[in-house]
């Protein structure tokens, strides 16, 4: 099992400017609510899934990913089974198993939207270094104090994870058993685990504050940034293609209504 985290690579999506991806995640999430044709949404989710698969063949091994697909399909099935509005498409004698157009479209819509948004977020997370995203956000106006909250937590998270592992091992070699049957004892053990972790986190925060102050952090209301990658022609082309793509989806969606 893999963690859901940035994985370095060199795909087109990897090379896009973080803000381009972030903006399209937001825009895309809105647009899927404007489309009301279940089939289009379901196909859209399928396209995103294909992109995910092309970017990372091991996407199926990412923790929680199968649960997302399961939830999406379950939503579809629940609507098919319980929403009986619209015309009957397939009739069998048991009412629960007959299909109606209303149930079908609403099911595909809800499930398609859910999966499209989740897959789109996965695309962003898997291909974007969160550090670059934080810097990009600060460059377009996110107050740098908040931006660096994100940067420092990104830096400290793996360290804390490593510390957690060491503390667990240190408990193990001192004869601690994680006995789940005894809740009171388990609570004590968890407290014994959290105490060193918390103290260590506070100590780190203290030293980091020291280092921040010693290097002029917060001295001026603004700050500059070193030369970093900027949006390129790739971002413009991708944005144009995506705009055309969504325009086409709208045309299919609403064109058919006329």
């Amino acid at each position: 099992m893999h963690k859901l985290a940035y994985q370095p690579g060199n795909s087109v999506i990897h090379r896009l400017y973080p803000m381009t991806k972030f903006s399209w995640l937001i825009i895309g999430s809105f647009l899927v609510f404007l489309i009301n044709n279940g089939v289009i949404l379901f196909v859209l989710a399928g396209i995103f899934l294909l992109m995910l698969h092309l970017i990372n063949r091991e996407i199926w091994m990412v923790r929680g990913f199968r649960l997302i697909i399961f939830t999406g399909l379950l939503l579809l099935i629940l609507y098919l089974v319980f929403d009986k509005s619209g015309q009957t498409l397939f009739d069998c004698n048991i009412e629960l198993f007959s299909l109606t157009s209303g149930g079908m479209n609403t099911g595909l819509c809800v499930s398609g939207r859910f999966m499209a948004i989740v897959f789109l977020s996965y695309l962003l997370i898997l291909t974007t270094d969160p550090n670059h995203l934080a810097y990009a956000l600060m460059k377009i106006g996110l107050p740098y104090r908040y931006g660096f909250m994100l940067v420092t937590s990104l830096r400290l998270a793996p360290l804390m994870e490593e510390e957690g592992r060491t503390i667990y091992r240190a408990q193990l070699v001192r004869g601690v058993h994680y006995d789940r049957s005894n809740v009171k004892k388990l609570f004590l053990i968890v407290r014994q685990f959290m105490t060193p972790l918390l103290i260590s986190a506070l100590r780190r925060a203290d030293k980091l504050a020291f280092s921040l102050e010693g290097r002029g952090f917060g001295r001026y209301p603004g700050r500059t940034f070193r030369t970093q990658t900027n949006p390129s022609i790739l971002d413009i082309t991708t944005s144009i293609i995506l705009s055309l793509f969504f325009a086409m989806l709208f045309l299919i969606n609403y064109g058919s209504l006329i």
Partner: peptide, 8 residues
């Protein structure tokens, strides 16, 4: 390690 504020 204690004084790094960034990742790169």
């Amino acid at each position: 390690e204690d004084q790094f504020c960034t990742l790169t």
